[in-house]
Simulated scan of single mutants.
Amino acid sequence: MEAFTAEYDKRKAEIDSYIQLITILDNDGAQLSDIDGNNFFISAVQSKVCKASFYLLLYNLIEATVMNGITSIYDRIKDERLKFNDIKEDLRKVWWHSKSESIISCPKSEVTETVYSHFVDAINTSEIEFGRFVSGVSGNLSADGVRRVCHKYGIQPVSDGRDLESIKINRNNLAHGNKSFSDIGQDLTTPQLVEIKERVFIFLDQYVVNVNSYLESNSYKEL
């Protein structure tokens, strides 16, 4: 739990540092100087690219925080050496979902054996393992996507998150080359980015609080 929160705080600090850099570069006549005294002015295109890149950092923060929150639950289950019947039903369903890929991808002649193998794992005395599987995270997280993840695991969902949809869309457009960095960054102002950042922080802060409350109340255990 402490590691989860510490990692989140570190990533938030990175975002704040980047905003500070953009603010400096966005000043009229901003320039960089090297050790030899050479000055380099910041062009309009460079400023646009930096602003658009902010969407990549924000999306990285969102997805990493959601995944790390779920991983912290897995770590607690592993640390307590819990078995299939020790965890709540929501998590049992997630565990079975994590095995679906191995069932779907195996040859037809091996389906029965594969399902039986997972069934034995579920009912025997071995400790439960989720690996790196996080249900509902597929590289396209919006606010509703985060809430769906919370619902799957029984975590208290977070409200609002109005900016996450546009962050996801802009991130995907950049990642897949559908739009250039200068196209996406051309209409952005530094104050707008600061406002977006603050709203995203509020949303994720609550998610972190909810995950930690989930862990503190042992909500992953079967009552």
Score class of each variant (00 low, 15 high):
N85G: 06
L164N: 00
R132H: 05
I196W: 00
D205Q: 14
L57G: 13
T112P: 00
R147H: 04
T112S: 14
F40G: 00
N38P: 01
D183M: 12
V200W: 00
P107D: 15
K168S: 03
E222H: 12
V137F: 05
L61M: 06
G177C: 07
D36E: 06
S217V: 05
D26I: 03
L91E: 06
H118N: 10
E198Q: 10
Q20D: 13
N140K: 13
K108R: 07
V115P: 02
D75I: 11
A44F: 05
S43Q: 07
A175E: 07
I196Y: 01
H97Y: 07
S138G: 11
Q206D: 12
D205T: 13
T112K: 14
T114W: 04
L32T: 08
T125A: 05
H151E: 15
A122R: 04
L215T: 03
N173K: 15
D144I: 11
P157L: 08
E89R: 09
F133A: 06
N218S: 15
I73M: 07
A122L: 01
A3E: 15
F4W: 07
K48M: 15
K78V: 06
T65P: 05
E14N: 04
A30S: 15
D160T: 12
Y55D: 03
A44W: 01
A3R: 14
G154W: 05
K99G: 07
F130I: 04
N210P: 10
E113L: 13
S109A: 11
Y8W: 06
L188S: 02
D79W: 00
E2R: 14
I42Y: 10
T114P: 00
S138L: 04
A3D: 15
K221H: 05
N140W: 03
N170D: 12
F54P: 01
F40Q: 04
Q20T: 13
A13P: 01
E14Q: 04
D86S: 10
I202R: 09
L215K: 03
K93G: 01
N212A: 01
K168V: 04
A13W: 02
E110Q: 14
K168G: 00
I35T: 10
R148M: 14
